[in-house]
Write a protein that binds this DNA or RNA. Structure first.
Lengths: 338, 338
DNA sequence: CCTGCCCCACAACCCGTGGTTGTGGCCTGC
DNA sequence: GCAGGCCACAACCACGGGTTGTGGGGCAGG
């Protein structure tokens, strides 16, 4: 479908005349006629009735009208999403099925007026570079990278220590456990596809495996969540890790189990990074939202009870001292003023 | 923006290779390259990074990605809205700012899976013809037309008697009245723009004016709700009629008043008409929704309290006997089984 | 390290879509 | 009945977007 034809259709309807629409679009009346005729031919229905006074919408044209507007709005938003300056707030998340993504959804709900685009960068180095160049506005990362610390012009706000939970099918040996220790996972196969080597997420799982003698397979491409859940649901030996802050849904028949891991609780320390120079108005709102969400217990409760299988891990882990993080993520950083 | 280019961009991202996308789209690899390059040139940013292994999204490409999908979804819905057979449920309303439009909104909220298109036909004759031809699926109309009655293959369901309210600015002589009788409106100028002569809505106001000696000006084109409200808010003598079921919002400064009209209460008797042959699955859901909404007091309350200026007219009018309708709308019709 | 392969971009060419001008038919209102 | 709008059809033309052919650049394997 030709968006110019759609735009022309709207122009004709709003002015009521082909010729007037032509003037607005700076083309000839004949071109307007051709465009509308082509659109009608493509759709197979008549959109406008031509009278001696001009044109008005047929029933099909009336039904098409709001969709035509929606189409052009979508086009405008798509263009705006990549326009430098005054574009949507662009936030980098380490993964789509971790707490930051869920937090962004709640942020979007409470601030629907702020356009939001979510991207995923390769690693923290790329994120910091993108923050400094203004390509992105904020990034959820672990505060410290291996062997280095943040530049001075990057702000950081600790947001959430997200516990890792085990996700198994009903036939798994640990399916009925109320909780497991990391040490008990030794020998079990844990499959976490879609982890790109070299990223901090890969480093996290490598450290976790080394610390407790786990077998974590990060091989294989990520075909999406559904195939992963299908595989885990059917397998008696394969399990996977999910963040406690994820909002997973699966078919009833899968009968999956989310099992908290305690003693110690492996957590991933999400922080928000941003450039101190960035003037984007949505950025302040995001930081305020996260600061509030981090302290309000209601949000933490909503987080842990995500998929209908309530767990107490999220709250207990952040309050309890017995947590585990990789060495390179252990030291906390300054917490700047908002 | 060329939707084919957007589609090509998505194909490249999903397959990861220009050549593979070319195969899927049945064009050459060079054409894919050209399309993406043209899109990038139009947007002014690079969307894909080309590597020896294929292509992957840049940050801008990632941000653009969901908008690209939304664009194509909007296109698909637009096409589906006019495709004969299996198209969205298409409902005719007599006006956008009357109770039926509000009822359709509540219906859409409770059945978001049912695609809905709203149109406005010229008059009841056109509506019945469109119902019988399958061009529309349902129509909110007054049951009886002047001098005729419904064909046998058209079903009818009385939905709501909607009281008419007076809308005035703060300087109007009746601005402080808690309620007025129709007779008291004689001599006041009442302006209802956008009424097309020959329609049943025009006949309704003509009958109302004749019955009580009112001055109702239905002249002039409809420039939309905002100009009407602007005019009424500033005028000490001009008022307008609105349906009690409308959900009007206006700027705080306007300080408009919705004044119930009682003694008798002019109501418009909305019924739903549909073709008994129509198999559209959404139609049954709509009829059930309306049947439930007509009996549940919660909906009636939500209706009358629409714009933040609570009125008791909707409920009292439907329960009280002292209502007025035009002679041609007075007799009730059969109420068929759902 | 060189070579071959794979993948994408550039160049030249060519057809068809979509613009223009010119004109005619139809309805309406004076 | 005639004049004035308004839209559709026809002929023409230009350029966008397709094709084929070719070149450059990065990995991988010998």
């Amino acid at each position: 479908m030709d968006l110019e034809a759609v735009r022309t259709f709207l122009a004709v309807l709003e002015s009521g005349r082909f010729g007037q629409a032509a003037d607005e679009l700076s083309i000839t009346q004949q071109a307007v006629s051709k465009r509308v005729a082509a659109l009608e031919k493509e759709l197979g229905v008549r959109l406008l009735t031509r009278t001696a006074h001009g044109a008005e919408a047929t029933i099909d044209g009336q039904a098409f009208l709001p969709h035509a507007r929606a189409l052009l709005h979508a086009e405008a938003r798509a263009i705006a999403s990549v326009r430098p300056g005054s574009r949507a707030l662009r936030v980098d998340v380490i993964g789509r099925r971790l707490a930051p993504a869920a937090l962004l959804r709640t942020f979007h709900r409470s601030h629907p007026e702020i356009e939001l685009d979510v991207v995923t960068l390769f690693d923290a180095d790329a994120a910091v570079a993108a923050l400094r160049s203004g390509t992105i506005d904020a990034s959820f990362r672990a505060v410290t990278m291996p062997g280095r610390h943040l530049p001075e012009d990057i702000g950081a706000l600790p947001v959430l220590d997200e516990p890792i939970e085990l996700l198994t099918g009903p036939a798994h040996a640990l399916a009925s456990a109320r909780a497991v220790t990391p040490a008990r996972l030794a020998g079990h196969r844990i499959w976490v596809p879609g982890i790109v080597s070299g990223t901090e997420w890969a480093a996290y799982y490598a450290d976790l495996a080394a610390e407790f003698g786990l077998t974590i397979e990060v091989t294989g491409p990520d075909f999406g969540t559904e195939p992963l859940l299908d595989t885990v649901a059917d397998s008696p030996e394969l399990a996977t890790f999910v963040g406690a802050g994820t909002r997973l849904v699966w078919p009833e028949a899968h009968d999956l189990r989310r099992i908290p891991v305690h003693g110690p609780t492996p957590v991933y320390p999400h922080s928000l990074l941003w450039s101190l120079d960035n003037p984007h108005p949505g950025l302040l709102a995001l930081r305020e939202h996260l600061a509030a969400a981090g302290t309000e217990p209601s949000d933490a409760a909503a987080l842990s009870g995500a998929s209908g299988t309530p767990t107490a891990s999220a709250t207990s882990a952040t309050s309890g001292p017995d947590i585990w993080t990789p060495s390179w993520a252990r030291q906390r950083t300054r917490r700047p003023a908002l």
